[in-house]
Amino acid sequence: MNGCNHNPRASRIHRAFASAKEQQRPAFVAYVTCGDPTLDRTRQLAVEFAGAGVDILELGVPFTDPMADGTANQEAALRALANGVTLRHVLQTTEALRGRGLELPVVLFTYYNPVFVYGVEKFAADAVSAGVDGVLLVDVPVEEAQEFKPAFDHAGLATIFLVAPTTDDRRLPHILGLTNGFVYCVSRSGVTGERNGLASGIRENVARIRRLTQLPVAVGFGISSREQVREIGQFADGVVVGSAIVRRIGEGGDTDEMVCRVTEFVRTLTGQFIGG
């Protein structure tokens, strides 16, 4: 069994899913690119999200070459990079949020090179002490997981992997065996970004994962409406919304109004659950 309880960091994630399940709703994972448009705004959004029904905060680490991301997240990364935001700032931001009492589990979504250059062991230790719960290295598949898995396990940092529609039955057990926290199921083959409707086969893919693991399964990539959130909630443990939020941050810019509007949008996505 993949013991998410054995990992102290995974347990904050575990509790988030457990409490959502208790309330008979999917856990809501909100993605923002850290430092977009500024680190201050990211901190504000995180605090607002905690009161808007978000269960897990996913912070994107800006990278110059976000190969797996669509336009919205690419542009967000550029905005953050233009402010000089780096991996160190992402860790500092997490630490500052914990200092303000943020209880949400924080998961980093990052490409490998910034982590590699930071030093995998140092990163794992610093991430844990900053209050990061888990990390998804989007361009490190299980075949290369020895790059970071021992260090992350040692530090107690949950390792989250993607399962894609193309993932075959031979790879799936291998992925699940290395995963803690939750399984991130990609709704369709493609980059991050908003899409209309739900991909066919996503329900089956989640069912296929469930047969092999007790870990919670969250669905992401392309989710942008309350309707999609509701639909996915019928068969998955969690929903990840990224680009739809990120696009609104980009449109709103570095303003208080942006924070209000984005938070309102997040409420419309989670809203059905707040009222029970």
Binding site: M67, A68, Y112, V138, D139, V140, P141, E143, E144, F161, L162, V163, A164, P165, T166, T167, D168, R171, I175, V186, S189, G190
Partner: peptide
């Protein structure tokens, strides 16, 4: 057979592409 030239190379790609 895992695509490594000593410490170099490898397959640093997202999961969707790995089966391909």
């Amino acid at each position: 057979n895992t695509g490594h030239f000593g410490i170099y190379g490898g397959r640093f790609a997202s999961e969707t592409l790995m089966p391909l």
